[in-house]
Design a protein around this nucleic acid. Structure first.
Lengths: 172, 172
DNA sequence: TCAATCCGATTGCATTTTGCAATCAGTTGC
DNA sequence: GCAACTGATTGCAAAATGCAATCGGATTGA
């Protein structure tokens, strides 16, 4: 990892981590899309990341301590990427960024419903989501009662409801 | 302004605004450093931005609606840059970014004291700061009682106290 | 008056980063 | 055996960045 920094300012250092057009997109897809494999990130990305950029950013995010990589026991060539605690604690920042974008930028309705729910849920919902991510990626024990729908499931259901409603409105 | 977007996702759109190494640095210096002129931003920047990059980013931030530019009545050549409401509402994101960076990145003590105070102050302090910025940049009426120290003054005083303490410790 | 300084930029140029398409060698399922 | 899929790598053109020098106009100080 490169240890030369422009300054010791927290905002500058954060920007040295995320100050590009792809790193946060990859983390978004892992956090909200549940993606763990190279191909899932490559083909599932709405924005169409190139494979060389994806490989470079995954390597860089590992060097920075935001991701780890492990072998997939089911496939000798597959790698599973996991979020570290450092990356999981970005959830509140993602929520704020989404909320800000929803107010000021030309977001699409179906893609902003998740941001809306996250905003309305506030810190308690973010904490629940972070616990779920710790379970998925770090093997931490689950804290929510069994049977509780996961935050990602709730967000996904809301997204699909909007898509279905818009499809119905279009055919009606 | 370019209206082609990679996707309508709020996080992606936010990244299209801030996904570079300088835009947020400029906004940070305007918000926390109170800088309004080209030269102040050019020479005051800890990270050493180049003048052509600064000119390009100021133009871009104006196109995006985050800044406005006006003539300085005291100097026919000077331009005054002002934050818009869109930029002022970034304060909570700045606070979160600073808090995250303080935990996970090699920040310097004197440059992270502001982030620490902003974090401890929480949303009420952010709101007070945003009101002050609305007064400075948008001409909005002040809401705090007269005589109350401004948030920027509080942050600056804390910064200087750390610098003074470290200087004393170094000579002792 | 007049030179020095400051103002917001602009220019030229070398380096670095990015985006895109094609390709790679090993693994898997059939 | 063989096509499809795995995580990447390579080559190359285009764009962004970094740096130093410079611009014409405005202001300042002697």
């Amino acid at each position: 990892m490169n240890t030369e920094h422009r300054s010791g300012c927290p905002i500058n250092l954060s920007l040295e981590v995320f100050g590009d057009r792809w790193s946060l997109i990859i983390l978004r897809d892992m956090i909200f899309g549940g993606r763990r494999h190279f191909r899932e990130l490559l083909n599932g990305s709405l924005e169409g990341i190139a494979s060389n950029i994806l490989a470079d950013r995954l390597r860089r995010l590992m060097e920075l301590g935001l991701l780890t990589k492990a072998d997939d026991p089911s496939h000798k060539q597959k790698a599973i990427y996991s979020l570290t605690e450092m990356a999981i604690t970005l959830v509140p920042i993602m929520a704020h960024l989404g909320a800000w974008g929803r107010v000021w930028l030309p977001v699409s309705e179906e893609l902003s419903i998740r941001a809306e729910l996250l905003e309305k849920g506030g810190p308690p919902l973010w904490e629940q989501f972070m616990d779920e991510l710790r379970h998925e990626h770090l093997g931490a024990p689950v804290k929510t009662p069994p049977g509780t729908p996961t935050v990602r499931q709730q967000l996904q259901a809301a997204y699909e409801a909007v898509v279905a409603r818009k499809a119905e409105a279009a055919t009606a």
